[in-house]
């Protein structure tokens, strides 16, 4: 049982702020981007960006795992 790395946790907070807590800032129809309402466009953008954040967190955890905690 181990507490996750601070860096990985911070990276994980980014999508939470971007697509959950900040909703009043981006929940609007205009400007339409690529034909999409702005709120929908914003969420779609954050799907790959969330993967990217987790990939970063994975790399951070990985460095620690290399010291021999898991296979």
């Amino acid at each position: 049982m181990k507490i996750p790395r601070t860096g990985a946790l911070l990276l994980a907070c980014v999508p939470f702020i971007a697509i959950c807590f900040s909703v009043p800032l981006w929940d609007r129809v205009y400007p339409l981007v690529l034909g999409l309402p702005f709120n929908l466009f914003w969420l779609i953008c954050w799907i790959p960006l969330t993967s990217l954040c987790l990939w970063g967190a994975y790399r951070l955890q990985d460095r620690r795992a290399a010291k021999g905690t898991s296979e």
Partner: peptide
């Protein structure tokens, strides 16, 4: 829109708790 948001964030949580 909550559906897109919650599915995406559920995986963020899973990253930490599932391996444990």
């Amino acid at each position: 829109l909550y559906i897109i948001a919650y599915l995406t964030l559920a995986y963020v949580i899973s990253f930490f708790i599932l391996p444990e």
